[in-house]
Write a protein that binds this DNA or RNA. Sequence first.
DNA 1: TCATTAAATGAATGGAATTAATTTAATGAA
DNA 2: TTCATTAAATTAATTCCATTCATTTAATGA
Lengths: 242, 242
Amino acid sequence: MVRPRNDERIDIRSRAVEAAARLFVERGTERVTLQDIAADVGCRAPALYRYFPNKEALLLEVHDEGFRRLYAFKADAGRAAGGDAVARLRLGGLAYIRFALENPNLYELMFNDRGPHRRLEELRASRSEGAADGTEDMAQRCLRFLETSIRDCQAAGYLQGLDTETAAFTFWSAVHGAASLALRGRGPFDVSRVDATVAQRAVVQTVETMMALVAASRRTNTDGTAPAGDGAARPAAPAGDP
Amino acid sequence: MVRPRNDERIDIRSRAVEAAARLFVERGTERVTLQDIAADVGCRAPALYRYFPNKEALLLEVHDEGFRRLYAFKADAGRAAGGDAVARLRLGGLAYIRFALENPNLYELMFNDRGPHRRLEELRASRSEGAADGTEDMAQRCLRFLETSIRDCQAAGYLQGLDTETAAFTFWSAVHGAASLALRGRGPFDVSRVDATVAQRAVVQTVETMMALVAASRRTNTDGTAPAGDGAARPAAPAGDP
DNA sequence: TCATTAAATGAATGGAATTAATTTAATGAA
DNA sequence: TTCATTAAATTAATTCCATTCATTTAATGA
């Protein structure tokens, strides 16, 4: 009963990741102990340490899995949108917030939880030579994906004069920010009764508002020039911050 | 040595909040134990329980203090901007991200940490009759503040046709999202070397991009009509989400 | 003056992560 | 085949913290 025979070995590593993903997503990371995971896998907690250096590493696995799912989810939405760049941008945004609101615990783990990110930093530090790693790739790929949509919108005459990369980050920020705030019960809804539907509506409205801004960005400068004489900030201002 | 005489009593409650604020801001919430705080105050950990039901309550105090500081910080920026609504919006955004990036641990506590928010929910639940509380007020006040800027911009001809509350939430989302992503090392910068300056630049650019969109929103519909025939989303679309 | 209440303390308690010591299985060379 | 070595678990510590308990001393008011 100490070391199992080969014929009754179980694949602890992969089963642990599965169990962790399911449990974390169900209950949130704080309400899941290594013993819970081990119980689900069918072993004892210390056995997990042969496969993961600590709990954070397990968190990071689930974090990575989350990004894979998010990417797949967005890619699906993109395919559904067909050729219209603006529609693709919009549907991508809606898909994103749907992912976040339907998997709040996973989303928290991916963006707000310090655990996996500490681990991520460790990995980066130790692996400073420059080996690529799957996670970064996947998170970066989500951003590249968005960049493509933005670039297509620009090709269609929208968002002229904006740096594509910067615009993509801005859109991601808006959508992530809205989801993130909604998950914390902050927003323009009555804070005492945080109805999921109401929160969701607010987040959806954020996407629609961004799309309205995209739409409004067209007429003004189809020719690529910035709107002059507005007294407002220019697109790519060098920005000496105050 | 058990109960101190009146002449050598210390104000544990307020000193605990101060100590907690300082230590949390310095090290992040996870690296601070109640014993650390008690040591700083000059008492033992259990003494704190006479004043706070648990650690989360203490986290919530610091969370509240954070919002007070944020509000003051933004209000200052607003005053500095004078009468120009667009400038006020921009400076408010820049102040916000500066606050976030200069106080990363506090910002995390205010927005990402689950502790204080769990406690917040408890309070809301128990106090369901409807008594107002200071925190909500302060967080809401930050949003109202932003709404005022937005309304002024609309009065100046920008962002026509958008619901003010929704637009304010969108701006907050963008700025919060950018700060939040930057603090996690995500963004359009080289992930392996997260130079603070580089991250900061990315977040500042987000504000500038939003301002560029505000600027672009003007010409199109000074008359208050939505830009027609764009084939893009309309400002306040009812939005049957997919 | 003394019973009661208030405000601390030091000593448990208990949960969770992690480490140590131990046991049993597999493996590969003699 | 046998046996030394390595691998993969286990159970039994250990450690760190939050929180609770029992106890002690001070204040307070009849």
